[in-house]
Design a protein around this nucleic acid. Structure first.
Length: 471
DNA sequence: TGAAATGTTGGGGCG
DNA sequence: ACGCCCCAACATTTC
């Protein structure tokens, strides 16, 4: 082929990019394109933090492409209309892109296929975002897995693919047709939420540096440190996996290399634990594709009958971090300010929303998608249904976290809570997770009293779930 | 990738 | 010396 448009979507990188390297291999000219659409068009709720991260990553991509002699073409508007027009302008025979796995995104790709077909332009999609997609790992009976452990076993029994080569230039830049480029909203501030303080930086080079640093040491302690929110024990790669500023094969290659250098069994086990987290991501991607109804309701349909509370004051308090439980409030305030939340804290606040406030997991799911930099439909939905007990391989409904004991176990001394709940500065470490035990100090601190009592709510929650089981 | 309730055991204080 | 009780520590069951 002479000219191919590579349409960048959730693959904002020039290395280890399957569709991009295929385009470079098969076409004389590659025209890199990014299309900025109104968030509602793809059916996902893009929040300010994720948008800021995205814009920064696109800018970083534009610079990287420029260094390679490519000009990134940016257009704003609906892809169905822009792509056929752009293909005509550029004289392109085909559009290449990396496959997306969410049902709503795939429906849109079908519409794009026919829009391009009408214009006589081909549309090719490539597997890139995951190692193994929805139809590639099935049970003996040919069904999709709904339990993680056997899924991960099957996943690990398959060979690991190598990273794809970086985009190279195969044609003189002067021969690329000049194409108009729209401007994107300039800075995160322009689109940002007033509460946003500090979102992590985007871009491929940032992601590669995070990977390098993590695999150079922290990965060996991941098994332990990942549970403590006050530590920075994670890879911080999740927003990059979401935006595609790093390829999954690149991460696996780095992990594999690190595992080979593990000094002891504990370090090797930590590598394995990190691998499992990557497999969870593919597990939930696969679940969403094979059971698209989970985007609308419980994986176990009987749990759609749960009589959740509709207390909007409680919901507002949860969102704002004013529930009176320091670990919950610290986690939510951190989310609101940075667009990120430690995984352990996601479980704690999700349990609190569903099992203490008795609000639907779907309220929390939606709020997370609005706030999270790494908000991904499949992983977010899977995590929420796990916490609520309504999903595949979910926590049983009676497994209810106690926010105090969780906090004391995973934030001993309260370093995390104190960082995000400044009102608690005067509380000693042994009391910080239950400030109500010192009422005079609590009143002086201006920190809110508990909006519910865990011991009471726990019993109400058990009754709520039992009512469903009886029907 | 729980927590609470309930059951069991054994050491030690005490009459 | 002995039985009784208390209760911490641990184990099991239940939600």
């Amino acid at each position: 082929m002479k000219t191919v448009i590579h349409w960048f979507r959730r693959d904002l990188r020039v290395r280890d990019n399957v569709a991009l390297s295929e385009a470079a291999r098969r076409a004389e000219q590659v025209i890199p394109v990014f299309i900025f659409e109104a968030a509602s068009r793809t059916g996902t709720d893009v929040g300010a933090a994720r948008l800021a991260f995205l814009l920064q990553s696109v800018e970083s991509l534009r610079q990287e492409l420029a260094e390679l002699g490519h000009a990134l073409v940016i257009r704003c508007g609906p892809a169905e209309e822009i792509l056929p027009k752009l293909a005509k302008e550029a004289g392109a025979q085909a559009v290449f892109a990396n496959k997306r796995h969410e049902p709503c995104a795939q429906h849109r790709d079908e519409r794009i296929t026919s829009a391009l077909l009408n214009a006589g332009v081909g549309f090719e999609l490539f597997k890139d975002a995951v190692v193994w997609e929805e139809t590639e790992i099935l049970t003996q009976a040919g069904n999709p897995y709904t339990v993680f452990t056997p899924y991960s076993k099957a996943w690990k029994s398959k060979p690991i693919p190598s990273p794809r080569p970086k985009l190279t230039i195969r044609h003189p830049a002067s021969r690329i047709p000049h194409l108009r480029s729209d401007t994107l909203p300039a800075t995160p501030d322009e689109v940002g939420h007033p509460l946003l303080q500090k979102i992590p930086p985007g871009g491929e080079l940032v992601a590669l540096e995070l990977l390098r640093r993590f695999m150079a040491g922290p990965v060996y302690g991941y098994g332990m440190s990942r549970n403590f929110p006050a530590l920075d024990g994670g890879s911080n790669l999740s927003p990059h996996l979401r935006a595609g500023t790093i390829g999954i094969r690149t991460i696996l290659a780095g992990l594999n290399k690190a595992k080979g250098k593990a000094a002891n069994a504990e370090a090797a086990k930590s590598c394995e634990t990190f691998l499992n987290e990557l497999i969870w991501r593919e597990f939930y991607t696969q679940v969403l594709h094979n059971f698209p109804r989970v985007a609308q309701g419980a994986f176990r349909p009987e749990y759609d009958r749960l009589q959740w509370s509709e207390n909007h004051d409680h919901f507002a308090a949860w969102c704002a971090g004013r529930t009176g439980y320091p670990i919950v409030d610290g986690a939510m305030r951190c989310l609101n300010a940075t667009g990120t939340m430690h995984n352990r804290l996601r479980m704690i606040v999700a349990m609190f929303l569903t099992k203490d406030l008795l609000l639907s997991w779907q309220w929390g799911e939606r709020y997370f998608m609005q706030q999270l930099v790494d908000g991904d439909l499949a992983a977010n939905n899977g995590g929420w249904q796990w916490s609520a007990g309504t999903g595949t391989d979910a926590a049983p409904y009676f497994r209810i976290f106690n926010p105090v004991s969780q906090a004391e176990k995973f934030d001993p001394g309260g370093d995390f809570a104190r960082r995000w709940v400044p009102e608690l500065a005067g509380f000693p470490g042994d009391l910080i997770h239950q400030p109500w035990k010192n009422l005079p100090l609590l009143e002086k601190s201006k920190y809110p009293p508990r909006i519910v009592l865990h011991e009471e709510q726990r019993l109400k929650c058990l009754a709520l779930f039992k009512a469903v089981k009886k029907i």
